[in-house]
Amino acid sequence: MTDAPDSPHWALLHAAVKGSHKKYSQDSSTARLVLGGAGALLAVADGHGSRAHHRSDLGSRWAVEAFTACALALAEDVRRRGGDEARWPAVLAAARGLPQQIVHHWWTRMALHEANSPAGGAWTSGPPPGPDPIPYGSTLVGVLVVGRLLLCWQLGDGDVVLVDETGEPSLPLYDGPELGDEADSLCQAEAWRQMRVHWQRLPVDRHTGVLVSTDGLSKSFADHAGFVSFAAGLRDRARDTGLDRIRDHLPDWLTQAASYSGDDSTLVGAFPAARYALGPQGATEPQPAAEQRHMAGPRGTEGTST
C-alpha cells in the first residue's frame, strides 16, 4: 500500500484464496490508496490457468502491474487538473485511451519474457516468430476512484459491484450470463479493443462502495442474484459493524466460495472511510459459521437443493 495519509477518504478490503484443487493461484490483485488517500485503485486479474495458458500466473501479475502503472498516471493527471468536473471530458478521453496503454505495457512485458525464455522452447530455424501471448492469457478488471469520479475497465470475466448505503447493488459492466465460454483475454489480438470502459459520477450523499472480484467468487453462487445479495450483505455488515470485522471474515468466506467453485477467488474493495471504517461501539459479535452460510449462500448450502 502506498503512502498512508492522515485521514484517507477510502478504506480498503483485500482478500484472495487459492482454488480448492489447485497447486498455485493464477489470480493477481491489488487494492491501494492513491493521491494520499483521496482516491483508490483496485484491480484483479484471473490467469486462464489451463494447459494452453500455463504461464498465466505471470500474465495476471503483469496485468495488475500494467493497470496499476497506467491508472496511477491517470490519477496524477486528474489531480493536476484539480479534480475539476469541467475538465472531465479530457479525463474521460484519457480513460478511453488507457486500454491501449495497459495492453501495450502488458504486451511488452510478455514479449520480453518470451524473448528470454519462449514458452514453446527455443526456435531452431527460420526467422524468429513474433511472441506468443497465449501462454500468458489473463483477464483484467480495474477501478480507479478519484474524488467523485469512478472509472472502471474490464476485459473478460470478473465483476465490479457498486454498493450504496442501502438498496440494491449495481453492476455497471454486467450484461448477463456469458453465453459462450470464449471470454475476452489479454492474449487475444488487439485485446484493448475488447476492454470496456465505464465511468460515472458518484453521488456524494450515498457513500458508495466498490467491490471488484474475479469470477471464482461469483461462480460460487447458485446464480447471479446470490452473488448480488452477497455484495449487499457484505455492505450491510460493513455499515453496521465496520470494515475491520469484514476483513477478519473475508478469507473464510472466500475459502468457502473457492471450495464451491474450485477456482481461485479474489475480492478487493474500497469504501468511504468516514462511513464504513469503524463499526459502531458495542456491536455484537456475529456468529461466524451461521453468518457465513447466510451471507454467502454459496452452492452446496441453499444452492444445490434448487
Binding site: 496524477e76 478521453a93 501495450h104
Partner: peptide, 22 residues
C-alpha cells in the same frame, strides 16, 4: 480504419495519455 490516425508507435511509448502527452 477503426483506429485513431495519430495513435501509432509514438502513442504506444506513452504510459498514460495525460494532458501533457495528449
Amino acid at each position: 480504419m477503426n483506429h485513431h490516425p495519430f495513435q501509432g508507435a509514438l502513442a504506444l511509448k506513452i504510459r498514460c495519455l495525460d494532458e501533457a502527452a495528449q
